[in-house]
């Protein structure tokens, strides 16, 4: 009885979380313009998605932006974490406090404040893309910092000293000893930054050039009365992203298991 109830709770919540996206995925393969209508199999949504110039430039733009922001955030956040971890306590405390601000802050406030800083104080034009990249990096880099830090704490600090004693230059000790040790943290920080940038609406909407759209800003505008063709092409985009996420999650979770088994054998 208790077991049955537990299963029911789990599956009902899963149904709530997955049903909309699954139904949309199914309907993305039809020529239907509305959920519920029974229509024929068709790939025209996918054809539209990859032929409509507006949609292509939106997807490519979002990807390039996310990659640029994730790379910049990873570089800054990793360097910041290493530097702060080995600095004096006061410096480290101050960096940690400032680092926490974008993490807890509402994205609306982060976006708005970066926007007025860039435009009112620095007199930068949004068309330069600088406010957009800096704004998203200000959100993402702190998360990289937070994922690198635990790795630094776990690491044996004497390894770096040993490398120096054995005649390494600091740059060699850094790249050959320290960075490989914290690489998993850097990688997961990069992935977090990537997903944050891909998901961001609030910072992009205040800092992006008027002619540029990310997936988020595009979808929000499209809900305010887009053509049916665009609307259903976005179903195809949802289905594709869903598929990519599922495959990525499976790949990333299969690998550590395999490693563990190897380690145990």
């Amino acid at each position: 009885m208790r077991k049955a109830l537990e299963h029911a709770v789990i599956w009902l919540v899963l149904l709530f979380m997955y049903l909309p996206i699954l139904i949309l995925t199914v309907y993305s393969f039809t020529d239907s313009t509305m959920i519920g209508a029974i229509r024929n199999f068709s790939l025209h949504n996918y054809v539209t998605l990859f032929t409509e110039p507006e949609l292509i430039s939106m997807m490519v733009g979002t990807l390039i932006l996310a990659l640029a922001v994730a790379l910049l955030s990873t570089l800054l956040g990793t360097m910041g974490a290493i530097g702060a971890f080995y600095s004096k306590r006061g410096v480290r405390r101050a960096v940690e406090l400032a680092n926490q601000i974008p993490v807890v802050n509402a994205d609306v406030v982060t976006g708005f404040s970066v926007c007025i800083l860039m435009i009112a104080l620095f007199q930068l034009k949004k068309e330069t893309y600088i406010p957009l990249v800096i704004g998203q990096t200000a959100l993402c880099a702190p998360f990289v910092y937070l994922s690198v830090l635990p790795r630094l704490k776990q690491m044996d600090g004497q390894l770096y000293e040993a490398a120096l004693d054995l005649g390494c230059r600091p740059s060699q000790a850094l790249f050959k000893v320290l960075i490989p040790q914290i690489a998993p943290g850097i990688f997961s920080g990069f992935m977090t930054a990537l997903t944050l940038s891909l998901d961001d609406y609030f910072i992009a909407t205040y800092t992006k050039p008027a002619t540029f759209d990310t997936i988020s800003t595009y979808v929000v505008n499209a809900t305010r009365g887009a053509q049916t063709q665009i609307k259903t092409a976005l179903w195809a985009l949802s289905a594709l992203i869903f598929l990519i996420v599922v495959v990525t999650v499976i790949l990333m979770n299969v690998r550590p298991d395999a490693e563990q088994e190897q380690g145990g054998a």
């Binding site: 800054l76 956040g77 360097m79 910041g80 290493i82 530097g83 702060a84 971890f85 080995y86 600095s87 410096v91 960096v95 400032a98 680092n99 601000i101 974008p102 982060t110 404040s113 970066v114 007025i116 800083l117 009112a120 104080l121 800096i134 704004g135 990096t137 200000a138 880099a141 702190p142 910092y145 770096y160 230059r169 600091p170 740059s171 850094l174 320290l178």
Partner: peptide, 24 residues
């Protein structure tokens, strides 16, 4: 390339784009 110095770019970044916007 000493470890401490690596924090400098990030500290400048935080001051300029996280702390300063709050004052603005």
């Amino acid at each position: 390339f000493s470890r401490k110095q690596l924090a400098v770019p990030y500290i400048i970044f935080l001051l300029l784009f996280v702390v300063l916007p709050l004052f603005v």
